[in-house]
Simulated scan of single mutants.
Amino acid sequence: MSEYQYYEFQAIDRPLTQDELEQVRALSSRATISATHFVNEYHYGNFRGDERKLMEQLYDAHLHFANWGSRRLMLRLPTTLLPAQSAEPYCTDDALACWTRKGHLLLDFSYQAEDGGEWDFETSFTLASFTALRAELAAGDLRPLYLAWLSALTRWELEEDVDEDQYASTLEPPVPAGLAHLTGPQQTLADFLHVDPHLHTAAARASGTAPSQAIDKDALIAWIRALPPHEKDTLLLDAALGTAPKPGPALLARHRTASHATAQPSTAARRHSAAELLDAAYEVRTEHTRQQEQARAQARRAEQRARESHLDRLAERTPSKPGRTSPT
């Protein structure tokens, strides 16, 4: 059975230096490599680098998937945009890990197929489908983190040795607003992590409306004017030289914090236990199955009516055979 692996890295906040490029080129002679990108496919063998170290030192996003079911997405953000304490409630052993290194928060989303599962030769992803998640998280939208927790619960439900008391005692993390209406990258992440859509629907019912991303331009202008001149000079110099991450997201995050407008998880709704969510997902799944069966029954009835109508029209167009006369 042929193996296939895909590796992609992207530098977003700053390009790699020449020395860093040489370091990366030493890891592969076949990869497509630039100052901002690394892409390689493996039909045999494995990537020689350490993905975790490369993310800690050089890159801001990483994607890996293999046709035996292994999937991994890593994102790196400055802790000024997303502090570790905001992400930690959503971390689980087999879906999301987070840690800090040199002023950055690293998020490691992962999915491992169960042993004995079928190999996937059709599915394909690119990192471009996920990089917008980084900007969403920087803006305070924590829906991608909650989706990782749902992915872990999806797999936990399939385990056979879990005590019911564990489900009852495990509470969901803070529920971000807008779960019922995911962005495109968030829906791609849900598919990537195999989130049960019925579980997602059940969880979304406790979620508020989508967080507003609108910016009060007048308030932002006033806030920027109030920044100390030496700080503005430093920001412009760093932007011109490319010696620091793009200042926009960091400034917006600081502005939201200062004006108490940062989108936060909804805390008004009661947090549900894993058992409650799984029971609600069962009800959603049952109702979905009932609606599907009803739709199929309606389709069969419509098909039967169409067939009978067609036969009736054929009968009307078929002339009657003349009767036979007796010989005289």
Rank of each mutant, 00 (worst) to 15 (best):
F47E: 07
A152R: 10
L153H: 08
W223C: 00
T92A: 02
G184E: 14
L137N: 10
A26Y: 01
T183H: 09
P197F: 05
L27R: 04
D216F: 05
S34R: 11
Q18N: 07
A177D: 13
H64Y: 15
M55S: 03
F38S: 02
P174A: 00
D120S: 03
L314F: 02
R155N: 02
A84T: 05
H194N: 10
E157Q: 14
Y111C: 03
T267L: 14
Q187K: 15
R313E: 08
Y59S: 01
A66P: 10
D120C: 09
K246N: 11
P265S: 07
Y44V: 10
E316R: 15
L241Y: 10
I215M: 10
E293T: 11
P176S: 05
A35R: 01
S151V: 06
A210H: 02
A299M: 13
A258S: 13
R30N: 10
A250T: 13
F109Q: 05
P15G: 02
F192I: 01
H230W: 07
L193P: 08
Y44I: 12
A240M: 05
D216L: 04
C91G: 07
L106I: 14
L153R: 08
W149E: 08
P173Y: 10
Q23H: 01
E159P: 02
D13S: 04
F38Y: 05
R324W: 12
L27F: 03
L220W: 09
A281V: 13
H198S: 02
V162S: 05
T234D: 09
L189D: 03
A190T: 09
R254D: 04
A168N: 11
A219D: 06
A269T: 15
L77W: 08
P144L: 09
G69C: 03
Q166L: 11
H255T: 04
S266D: 15
Q213Y: 07
H194F: 07
